[in-house]
């Protein structure tokens, strides 16, 4: 082919490709600039969540300052739902078999507690090993621990969770001094990834949590009393 004909053909092809590039650039402009706000609003709805940092409820102390009721923060490892695909189910079963001796039943009622009160090492280990399984989660759990003989426990009273998930006193000193003991929960906003995990880099505290105040009661705890964990009932029950 003559040089002139070759030049013309290559220029035609190149022109077609350049027009294609201009159309592609226009599309990039449309999504990156023109439609930006609409898409960002959608991403905020999809990925950003506001969460509450619960305030630790204050202690109830005896006359000598010995704690008679206090709050403990611990972490449980739970299975929230069964993976949909059989292949994924099998992979999760094999992964869980490495850490738990008992076989998990997929037909059990969900959420299923796999292990309670995880140690810090266990939290790090499970978070890493199960990061691709949004079906299992490490959930923070707040427990109220009460100590002393039955008459003192009765004076201390009981706590329960209200509809908002906050611990409130429903009887005894817990109810009487509820405002002082409760404190104020903090708030955070965070972005979730496609598996529902928190993107820690995006975590921002919008309100700091203020823990509840300690209350000194007029009773005296006898020496050598055992602590026990109060089961938190729903307040309306």
């Amino acid at each position: 082919m003559a040089a002139g004909g070759f030049k013309l053909k290559t220029l035609t092809i190149l022109s077609f490709l350049l027009i294609w590039a201009v159309v592609a650039a226009a599309h990039v402009f449309y999504y990156a600039v023109a439609k930006r706000e609409e898409s960002l609003a959608e991403t905020r709805r999809i990925a950003w969540r506001e969460a509450e940092i619960p305030a630790l409820r204050g202690k109830i102390l005896d006359r000598n300052g010995v704690p008679a009721a206090w709050t403990e923060l611990c972490h449980d490892f739970i299975l929230e739902r069964v993976p949909e695909s059989p292949r994924r189910r099998e992979t999760l079963r094999r992964r869980m078999a490495r850490f738990f001796s008992a076989e998990v039943s997929w037909t059990a009622k969900m959420p299923l507690l796999l292990k309670n009160s995880l140690s810090p090492e266990e939290i790090v280990l499970y978070a890493r090993e199960f990061r691709f399984f949004p079906e299992v989660r490490i959930v923070p759990v707040i427990r109220r621990v009460v100590t002393g003989p039955p008459e003192i426990r009765e004076r201390i009273g009981k706590t329960a969770r209200n509809n908002a998930g906050e611990i409130v006193g429903i009887s005894g000193l817990e109810r009487k001094y509820d405002m002082e003991l409760s404190g104020r929960a903090g708030r955070v906003i965070v972005m979730l990834d496609r598996n529902g995990n928190w993107c820690n880099e995006t975590l921002r505290i919008t309100r700091r949590a203020e823990n509840g105040k300690d209350i000194t009661a007029d009773f005296l705890l006898p020496a050598g009393t055992d602590a026990s964990v109060e089961r938190l009932e729903n307040a309306e029950n």
Partner: peptide
Amino acid sequence: QYTMAHGG
């Protein structure tokens, strides 16, 4: 679409 929107 969402990724490009984050670019501006």
